[in-house]
């Protein structure tokens, strides 16, 4: 995983609450055995009509969404299935951060493990972001803040170890493997 400290991007706004992982990537795209190339399936049922043509009114099909790396979503984004294909699809499409007032647990975990930043902000900041689609934001992991175009800097919570892994490009598997002696000790003392 590439280390990440800062992200500066314009935002795409999808105000729907409870955007579930079946919307982020429908189940029919999960019969894959790799993690690559899922960006084309991102939001497939919202992005394309029955004939496979892009729906012009869907935000990701509009010119102003091009190049945006930050997705501002309604409350409780990423609920539902544990499919890691959801963050894989978002990342493959080009997103690097998802911002909401509430982010579902498994989706948050999966995002962190792939370098997609889950950013939980307060209601007031969220309302401002929803009202200003396309605004330029700067996310800083050093300070755990989001800088807004109106000059405000708002902080967001990030689990310290996840933050360390993101900023240093450390993968958790390497960390777990380095604790082999602890695991062996546990297995010896908790024999079943």
């Amino acid at each position: 995983m590439e280390p990440i400290t800062q992200l500066r991007s314009r935002t795409v706004v999808m105000p729907s609450t409870n955007i579930d992982t079946d919307q982020i990537i429908p189940a029919r795209f999960l019969t894959t055995t790799t993690r690559e190339g899922l960006g084309k399936a991102l939001f497939a049922d919202w992005r394309y009509d029955a004939a496979g043509n892009p729906r012009p009114d869907f935000i990701l099909n509009r010119p102003e969404a091009a190049g945006c790396q930050a997705l501002v979503a309604g409350r409780n984004v990423g609920c539902g299935s544990s499919r890691e294909h959801a963050p894989w699809a978002l990342i493959d499409y080009g997103f690097r951060a998802v911002i909401s007032t509430e982010i579902a647990d498994i989706f948050r975990n999966n995002s962190l493990k792939n370098g997609l930043l889950p950013v939980t902000v307060d209601e007031e900041t969220h309302a401002w972001l929803l009202a200003h689609p396309g605004t330029e934001i700067a996310i800083d992991l050093e300070t755990c803040t989001v800088a807004l175009a109106d000059g405000r800097e708002v902080s967001f919570p990030l689990e310290p170890f996840a933050r360390y892994c993101l900023m240093n490009g450390v993968d958790e598997l390497g960390f777990l493997l380095s604790r082999k002696e602890d695991i062996e000790h546990y297995e010896r003392t908790h024999a079943k």
């Binding site: 993690r35 544990s82 499919r83 890691e84 498994i106 975990n109 999966n110 493990k113 792939n114 689990e159 170890f161 958790e172 598997l173 960390f175 777990l176 493997l177 604790r179 082999k180 695991i183 297995e187």
Partner: peptide
């Protein structure tokens, strides 16, 4: 509890998970 695929790899390799 349910986990993502990266965590499936963690459990396969170490029988452990990092959890708050």
């Amino acid at each position: 509890f349910g986990i993502g695929t990266t965590e499936v790899g963690h459990v396969l390799a170490t029988q452990c998970l990092l959890q708050r």
